Amino acid sequence: MPKETVLFICTEKESYPRNNQIVKSLHDNFEVIKITSDKSSYPLRIIEVVARLALSALFRNYSLVFAGFLGQPLVFIIKFFTKKPLILDAFVSAYDVLCLDRQDFKPGSFVGKIAYHLDELSFRLADTIITDTRSNADFFSKLFKIKRRKFYTLYMGTDENIFYPRETKINNDKCIVFFHGTFWSLHGIEYIIKAAKLLEDSTDILFRLLGGGREKIKMIKLTKELNLKNVEFIDWVSYQNLSCRIAESDICLGGHFSNNEKAKRVISGKTIQYLAMKKPVIAADSPAAKELFTHAENIYLCAMADEKSLAKAIIELKGNAALRDKLARSGFELFKNRLSAQQSRNRLNEIIRDNRKS
């Protein structure tokens, strides 16, 4: 029996982790027509995928449309070209990112209003909306006045061909506390640096921060002002090299450690990667984290925006090998049972089945 065909379209590159997760999950049970673009310019990517969508609407057969990461600008166009059911992955909200999280624009500004109405219209037109946590679904439902029953949760996964358990510890004299990510205020990297200050007398602890972004220079400056010798910064590396860096680490910091409202609603992708590599993880004690994790069972939770709580968590894990091993093993089991590629495929199939019934 031939597989059902799904059309997948997005404005971000297919290689983006969330898109990659969705496409791989779809391929297992569906024939997938992919409309994506690798162009570096966002406007050019939109032009390319819209042109290819128009051709697909005329000459290709499919039963369902799946709009991937940052698909909101495409929803109205998709609905113009086809009446097929539409699933929107609302992994991010333009309004949430621009006005509430990064605060590049005020909510009442022209750009803020455009972003709000873009999200609101796309959510109303979509038949089903997917978010990465239940907390985000609750928030978007209330913010944009969309019925909660339209929302489904698909937790973030990771590439298990890259992120898997391995032993490559090369420096037994240092306890490596590792973080990687984009240096945005959401992540609360300043609390990691302030925790490093509190622990500077523990000369066997090294904080390794990998990544880049708009606040990296600010964080380097803070480190110099505090005269820290126990923090090192590393620029972005390939995913393969990133997994090696994780494997070298003793304790991994999942975040998000800021007091940002969005930080309370999301689970970082890095947290999932660390769990997949069987590492003990410290994350912030947020409503989103509690959807999946139990403190001191499969993860260690510390208070948000609190360097003292983070420093205390690091010291406890450093001095308790049995607890580190327990968190690593239980966290890895949770990953396999709730967040693996197979679980992602199963969950996506459930969402698509429910979409057909509605």
Results as ranks from 00 to 15, higher is better:
292 L>W: 07
94 A>M: 15
339 L>E: 05
155 Y>F: 15
31 E>A: 00
165 P>A: 09
265 R>G: 05
115 A>M: 13
29 N>G: 09
18 R>F: 07
310 L>K: 01
249 S>F: 03
50 V>G: 03
281 V>M: 09
167 E>V: 07
20 N>W: 06
246 I>M: 05
328 A>P: 06
7 L>V: 05
268 S>E: 02
254 G>R: 06
57 A>I: 11
193 I>S: 10
185 S>T: 12
216 K>G: 07
245 R>E: 15
312 K>T: 08
179 F>Q: 07
273 Q>M: 13
233 F>N: 13
59 F>S: 13
129 I>Y: 02
2 P>C: 00
120 E>D: 12
225 E>K: 15
26 L>F: 08
193 I>N: 09
222 L>C: 11
54 A>W: 13
285 D>Y: 03
340 S>E: 04
31 E>C: 00
120 E>H: 14
99 C>R: 08
10 C>P: 00
11 T>M: 04
281 V>E: 09
338 R>G: 00
353 R>H: 12
104 D>L: 15
126 A>Y: 01
251 I>T: 10
232 E>A: 07
80 F>C: 14
237 V>A: 05
7 L>S: 04
65 V>N: 06
151 F>S: 06
75 V>R: 00
204 D>H: 14
28 D>W: 02
57 A>D: 08
63 S>V: 03
265 R>F: 06
305 A>N: 11
123 F>P: 02
274 Y>D: 02
309 S>G: 01
76 F>Q: 05
349 N>E: 12
176 I>N: 08
280 P>I: 03
199 L>S: 13
25 S>V: 05
